[in-house]
Design a protein around this nucleic acid. Structure first.
Length: 597
RNA sequence: GGUCUGGUAGCUCAGCUGGAUAGAGCAUCAGCCUUCUAAGCUGAGGGUCAUUGGUUCGAAUCCAAUCCAGAUCACCA
């Protein structure tokens, strides 16, 4: 049980004994004591005043006395300042926490709870390479999946590849028209980037055609509809749905190029999936459900034969689910896939990691699933994250301000190489070790930078700040870890492999020692919070705080040359404990920690 | 226009299920390496928590209104 829970429980029991009426943890707050006051945790008295008809200080004294008298192993003393009951936790309690957990690699993690969750993330389009926004999605989805696992859930990481549709046909048409048979192999360009170039070429050609039509006297609206390249693209989509062999062949070839490129990127950034869905396989499934929805009268058909759902009663609008030409729209496939996920895996919850620009879409999706009476429709959860903007404003592909994922990774790794070489601490590393270290630091910096912010919030990506390796960054934490490991290695060399194994004696704690144990003790609660909030930034902030606390302790007190053997053992345990939590927490963010750097 | 987000230090962000004098990092300034890795540590300056009103013993936090910014309301995905 956590300290906070213990304080809550003992306070509930004491209050009930003192005032012979029932209390719950909601009747009072337990906070960490502010540094300017004496004590470790504080119980706020004000909320009890009404029920007890006593002054805050009077309640505080009675409760404080009772707690110290009846829970001597937990509380050593108390003081009251203006209605705040400041409790000092005994050093024996803290050293007990340390001794029990310092070497537990599963510290903070929970037993399997029998629940199954699918986390869908990444979900790329196969018409252009990944960019900065995708990175936030990938890191977030991966991390949330791992956090769920640590909290006892069985997790299936999934990905829906948007491999068909009008946008895919655009790059196909452009390739037909402009490529002269060029391939990634013939040009030496990474497959996803290669295809992306043709998507850009489509838009350029389309814009030019529209401009020409407007110049010829057409309205903008008509010009956009009648541009030959757009008409060709629409025809291609129909041909694709009809299974026309040469279209299917080209589609397979070009998607193949993209997948080769994606594989490289995913491997580099550490994204992995248990199940990959392809839209080309799921979009027809949605059509069956459209029929069922018609039968159930959830959907209705308009005169032009397009099919709709009316959501105006729910405060939304009418939404199309099938075009008049019988082809699917995006949401149709989503409905089909939502059902398939439940049918295939029997999942208890379905999480979608998708940008907040699709809040409306996801609301509609869930509502339709509910109206169709689909099982577990209530357990669809949209993990809505904010866009990544640049210091200069939004990323716009038209203005060429999109930050490419591959480029960014290389830049970060190159920067970590440069920093590492300047510091010259690992000159004895072999080539392969150096390469691994640069990756660890560069990717660590990037992941931490994107995960340290609350996912819900729009965030600003500042290139200068992102490659800073000082302060609130991944490398700062990695460095703290490497320093601890360095100490532990040295002590082991000097004292033998079992150097850290003593039971701590009843030893009194210095402020910085206690502060570190208090921080470490909070890790399980942090993991739980990160899980319920689906929020890795909770862990990022916490691990940074822990590392900072350790660094202050480290500067002030020697571990290897502690003033007594008891202190040395205590601090070795403390260092081991801290390193373990850093490693565990960073792992949940998808960030590796180096033994040396 | 409807709906939904958000507005905290020069910049990037915590804090938001109400609690003590609102916290970090970066940047600025001043210190600390013959002793465990200075990618570190210590300290200083820096705030009308968008504005106004309300609820409360107590509001950055809850409620309302206003201002500002963004997203969305496609037979696009």
């Amino acid at each position: 049980m956590s300290v906070v829970s213990s304080i809550q429980q003992s306070s509930i029991e004491s209050l009930s004994a003192l005032f012979s009426q029932p209390f719950t943890e909601k009747d009072f707050q337990v906070n960490q004591t502010k540094p300017e006051f004496e004590g470790d945790y504080t119980v706020v008295m004000f909320s009890l005043v009404k029920a007890l008809k006593l002054s805050p200080d009077a309640i505080g004294h009675q409760l404080g006395n009772h707690l110290v008298a009846n829970y001597p192993q937990l509380f050593s003393k108390y003081n009251i300042i203006k209605g705040f009951l400041n409790l000092s936790i005994s050093d024996a309690y803290w050293t007990g926490v340390l001794n029990k957990n310092y070497n537990d690699t599963c510290y903070g993690k929970k037993e399997m709870n029998g629940k199954k969750v699918m986390v869908e993330y990444s979900s790329p389009n196969t018409n252009k390479p990944l960019h900065l926004g995708h990175l936030r999605n990938n890191f977030l989805g991966w991390s949330v999946a791992e956090i769920l696992k640590a909290n006892g859930y069985e997790v299936i990481k999934s990905c829906i590849v948007n491999d068909r549709g009008i946008h895919i046909c655009k790059s196909m048409i452009a390739w037909q028209k402009f490529a002269n048979g060029a391939t990634p192999q013939s040009t030496g360009i990474k497959g996803d980037h290669f295809v992306g170039e043709y998507y850009v070429k489509f838009n350029d050609a389309y814009k030019q055609e529209v401009d020409e039509l407007i110049a010829a006297g057409k309205t903008k609206e008509i010009a956009e509809k009648e541009a030959p390249i757009m008409k060709a693209t629409q025809q291609m989509l129909l041909d694709w749905e009809a299974g026309k062999p040469e279209v299917i062949d080209l589609w397979k070839t070009m998607n193949g190029w993209v997948y080769e490129g994606f594989d490289v990127t995913y491997k580099r950034i550490g994204s992995d999936f248990d199940k990959i869905y392809y839209e080309s396989n799921t979009y027809l499934l949605g059509k069956d459900i459209v029929q069922q929805g018609m039968d159930k009268k959830v959907f209705y058909q308009k005169e032009d034969s397009s099919i709709w759902i009316d959501l105006t009663a729910d405060g939304l609008d009418e939404k199309i689910v099938q075009r008049k030409d019988g082809t699917s729209v995006y949401i149709t496939q989503d409905i089909g896939l939502a059902l398939q996920k439940y049918e295939q895996y029997g999942i208890d919850q379905s999480i979608y990691v998708i940008g907040n620009e699709q809040n409306y879409h996801m609301k509609v999706l869930q509502l339709i699933c509910q109206k169709l009476g689909m099982p577990n429709a209530d357990n669809i959860f949209h993990l809505s994250y904010g866009m990544v903007e640049l210091t200069t404003g939004k990323m716009k592909s038209r203005e060429g301000t999109v930050v490419d994922a591959d480029d960014l990774v290389e830049e970060m790794v190159a920067t970590s190489k440069q920093h590492t070489e300047e510091l010259g601490k690992v000159k004895d590393f072999k080539e392969a070790e150096l390469k691994e270290l640069y990756d660890t630091i560069g990717l660590g910096a990037m992941k931490f930078y994107l995960l340290r912010v609350d996912p819900k919030k729009t965030m600003v990506f500042d290139p200068k700040e992102s490659i800073d390796f000082h302060g609130f960054t991944g490398p700062f934490i990695q460095y703290t870890y490497a320093r601890i490991k360095s100490i532990l290695r040295k002590v082991e060399e000097a004292d033998g492999a079992s150097a850290v194994n003593h039971q701590p004696s009843a030893i009194s704690l210095l402020p910085l020692e206690k502060e570190l144990i208090i921080a470490a003790e909070q890790y399980p609660a942090v993991l739980e919070q990160a899980c319920t909030e689906h929020n890795p930034s909770v862990i990022a902030n916490y691990i940074f705080h822990l590392a900072k606390t350790f660094n202050s302790f480290y500067t002030e007190h020697s571990i290897a040359n502690a003033e007594s053997d008891g202190k040395k053992q205590l601090r070795l345990q403390l260092a081991t404990f801290t390193a373990g939590i850093i490693k565990s927490g960073m792992q949940l963010l998808g960030i590796k920690v180096p033994e040396r750097m």
